[in-house]
C-alpha cells in the first residue's frame, strides 16, 4: 500500500471509533452501567449493615443458652428457624435456603430464555420466561411469609418494662434483639424485594411482547437479554444479602 492511501484512511482498531468497541449495543451498555450504579446503592446499604452491627455487642455465650435480648445482636439461626406448616419445630435457616434455591433456579430459567432468544425460538422464550416469572413470584411469596412470621413473632415474645409482652418486630420495636436488627432486615430485604418485584413486572412485559411477536418481527431478542442482565444482578445481590443477614 502506498503512503498516501494509508494517510487517507482513518485508523480502524477496536477503539478507533466507528464501531462498538465492547461488542455491545448502547442499550446493553446502559444496562451494565445502571447495574454498576445499583451495586453502589446496595453496597451502601450493606456497609450500613456492617457498621451498625459493629456498633452493637455480639453475643458471647454458647448457642444452647442463647435467649433474645436487646443487649446484643441475635444469632440468625435462632431468629429464622421457622418453616410453614412446622410450627414450633427448630429448623434453622431451612426456609431461607429454600427461597434462595428458588431464586437461583429462576436465574437458570432466565439463562434458558435468553438462549432461546438467540435461537429466535419464540415458543421456548415464552416457556422459559413464564418459568422465570413463576419462580420469581414464588420467591416473593416466600419472602412475604418470612416477613409476616418475623412481624408476628414467637410464642413467648419480649417482656416490656411495664410488664406487658411484645410479640414480633416492627420498625420501632423488636423482640429478637436490638431494634436496628429489625430496621435493617425490613429495609434491606424490602429494597431487594422491590427490585425482584420490578424485575417480575419487566418480565411480564417481556412475556407479553414476546407473545405478540414483536421481537420475532424485530429479528432479535436483545430486550429479553437486557432484562436478563437485570434479573441475574438481582439474584446476585440476594446472595450477598443472604450472606450478610443469615450467615455471618
Amino acid at each position: 500500500m502506498s503512503t498516501t492511501t494509508t494517510l487517507e484512511q482513518p485508523k480502524t482498531g477496536t477503539w478507533d471509533g466507528g464501531n462498538e468497541p465492547m461488542k455491545a449495543s448502547y442499550g446493553k451498555l446502559m444496562m451494565w452501567f445502571f447495574l454498576l450504579s445499583d451495586t453502589f446503592t446496595f453496597g451502601a446499604f450493606l456497609t450500613t449493615y456492617g457498621l451498625i452491627r459493629h456498633r452493637h455487642n455480639a453475643y458471647t455465650g454458647t448457642a444452647e443458652d442463647f435467649t433474645f435480648s436487646t443487649a446484643y445482636w441475635p444469632i440468625p439461626e435462632k431468629v429464622f428457624n421457622a418453616f410453614p406448616g412446622f410450627h414450633g419445630v427448630d429448623l434453622p435457616l431451612a426456609f431461607v435456603a429454600l427461597m434462595t434455591m428458588i431464586l437461583i433456579l429462576s436465574s437458570v430459567t432466565m439463562v434458558l430464555a435468553v438462549e432461546a432468544g438467540h435461537r429466535i425460538d419464540k415458543n421456548d422464550v415464552q416457556k422459559w420466561l413464564l418459568w422465570t416469572i413463576l419462580f420469581g413470584s414464588t420467591f416473593l411469596a416466600c419472602q412475604a411469609w418470612e416477613w409476616s412470621h418475623f412481624i408476628t413473632g414467637s410464642d413467648q415474645g419480649m417482656l416490656m418494662p411495664d410488664g406487658t409482652r411484645f410479640f414480633g418486630a416492627n420498625l420501632a420495636q423488636n423482640e429478637y434483639g436490638p431494634v436496628l436488627f429489625a430496621d435493617l432486615f425490613f429495609f434491606i430485604t424490602g429494597f431487594h424485594g422491590t427490585h425482584v418485584f420490578s424485575g417480575i413486572v419487566l418480565l411480564i412485559i417481556m412475556f407479553i411482547t414476546t407473545v405478540n411477536g414483536t421481537f420475532q418481527r424485530r429479528g432479535h431478542y436483545e430486550m429479553v437479554e437486557k432484562i436478563g442482565l437485570y434479573w441475574h444482578f438481582v439474584d446476585l445481590v440476594w446472595v450477598f444479602v443472604f450472606t450478610f443477614f443469615y450467615l455471618v
Partner: peptide, 14 residues
C-alpha cells in the same frame, strides 16, 4: 458514557 464508548466517529480513538 455509552455515547462516548459507542458513537465515536471513524478514527476517533480514545
Amino acid at each position: 458514557i455509552t455515547t462516548i464508548i459507542n458513537l465515536r466517529t471513524k478514527g476517533m480513538s480514545m
